[in-house]
């Protein structure tokens, strides 16, 4: 049996809402340690992997590891029907592994709403990329910045063009674009420390200058999720997809891996 409870408006609900523009179906794995989700966008440019440790939920129980495919848009639609103050329970019983049950309980416990959501096949969303998760040292540069600043950069650049070039070297981290109507270049002088301050842009890992070109549509989508958190960590390498990561509590994370654009 698997069962988790959370308050309406909790971080999981916020994240599920924020990933909807990229993801329809996700593969969810539950273990005693927590709730993880993997999903691939329909164009196979972005892979999303998140892990919510059990302690971030109001209560959490998982007797046996389980894996299921969930139509995220349908689940979010159901969750939206909850009222302020409701406690939301998501449950899968061993006897019935064809759907999950979502329950809302009103704060005064006088009203309960039960809904069943059919599970779907999401095996194609399961990429064996676990090795990427421990590949921080393989990235040529990793920096952290306030997620509000990341969102602002993406919005400012998308006025001009669809792409952003992110360049990182020891002296500067820049976001730039060039379009028909002009160009924008946003430069940040980074701090260099292992303990990034919340308000600053910090270069935490540097093996050499690197630059990548990315579609701003995907970057804005990553930025949308990141604004649920204070800071975002971005890793660049010419041999790996761009990594955008936010930490959830001590052990949890949400990570996007975004394939860049190349010059033909």
């Amino acid at each position: 049996m698997f069962e988790l409870t959370m308050a309406k408006g909790s971080i999981l609900q916020g994240v599920l809402e924020a990933i909807l523009d990229l993801v329809n179906v996700a593969n969810v794995d539950c273990s005693s340690k927590g709730f993880s989700l993997q999903a691939l966008d329909t164009e196979h440019v972005v892979f999303l992997s998140l892990f919510f440790p059990s302690e971030v939920f109001r209560s959490y129980r998982c007797d046996e590891d389980c894996s299921m495919g969930i139509a995220i848009a349908d689940m979010v639609d159901l969750l939206r029907a909850s009222n302020d103050g409701d406690i939301i329970t998501i449950k899968v019983t061993d006897q019935n592994f064809e759907d999950i049950t979502i329950t809302f309980e009103s704060p005064d416990k006088t009203k309960t709403t039960d809904m069943d959501l059919q599970l779907v096949d999401a095996r194609s969303h399961r990429l064996k990329i676990s090795e990427w998760h421990d590949m921080e040292s393989e990235y040529q540069a990793i920096f952290c910045m306030p997620s509000a600043q990341f969102m602002l950069n993406c919005k400012s650049l998308s006025v001009i063009d669809d792409d952003v070039v992110i360049r990182v070297n020891e002296e500067v981290i820049s976001f730039s674009t060039k379009g028909k109507s002009g160009c924008v270049n946003i430069s940040h002088v980074p701090n260099k420390t292992d303990n990034p301050e919340k308000a600053s842009v910090t270069l935490t890992h540097m093996r050499g200058p690197v630059s990548l070109t990315l579609n701003l549509r995907y970057m804005k989508s990553c930025a949308k999720v990141s604004t649920l958190f204070d800071q975002v960590k971005i890793g660049l390498s010419t041999k790996l997809p761009l990594m955008v990561e936010c930490k959830i509590a001590e052990k949890g994370y949400i990570r996007y891996f975004v394939a860049p654009k190349i010059t033909e």
């Binding site: 891996f257 654009k261 190349i262 033909e264």
Partner: peptide, 14 residues
């Protein structure tokens, strides 16, 4: 012109 890469270019074991 720029071409959008797919994740499969980085990873084959799907």
């Amino acid at each position: 012109s720029r071409k959008q890469m797919k994740l499969s270019a980085f990873f084959s074991g799907k």
